[in-house]
Amino acid sequence: MEIVIALAFSAAVLVGADRLLLWLESRGHVRWRRTGRRDLSAEPTTRLDSMLSENARR
């Protein structure tokens, strides 16, 4: 009987967390399930070599 209660409690926590994240997503705080992924090819890119070179630090 204890395992059933533990499983029900775990399910309730997961559903509650999901609802909380959906609510935060609707207000624009996080990306959870309903908004798609960003198109990373449209993001600006910087080569790692140029970021770590000595000339870029000056």
Rank of each mutant, 00 (worst) to 15 (best):
M1K: 11
E2A: 12
E2T: 08
I3E: 14
L7C: 08
L7E: 13
L7D: 06
L7F: 08
F9I: 12
F9V: 14
S10L: 15
S10W: 12
S10I: 14
S10Q: 13
A12Q: 14
A12Y: 07
A12R: 07
A12C: 12
V13I: 15
V13L: 15
V15Y: 07
V15P: 00
G16P: 08
A17E: 08
D18H: 06
D18R: 01
R19I: 11
R19F: 11
L20H: 05
L20P: 02
L21F: 08
L22K: 05
L22I: 03
W23K: 03
E25P: 00
S26N: 04
S26R: 08
G28L: 02
H29S: 00
W32G: 01
R33C: 05
R33H: 11
R33K: 01
R33S: 05
G36N: 04
R38P: 11
D39A: 15
S41L: 14
S41H: 09
S41Q: 13
S41P: 04
A42Q: 02
A42S: 05
P44V: 14
T45P: 01
R47L: 11
R47Q: 07
D49F: 09
S50H: 00
M51C: 04
L52R: 09
L52W: 09
L52Y: 07
S53P: 07
S53H: 06
E54R: 11
E54S: 15
N55H: 10
N55T: 10
N55E: 06
A56C: 00
A56D: 00
R57A: 13
R58I: 03
R58Y: 12
R58A: 14
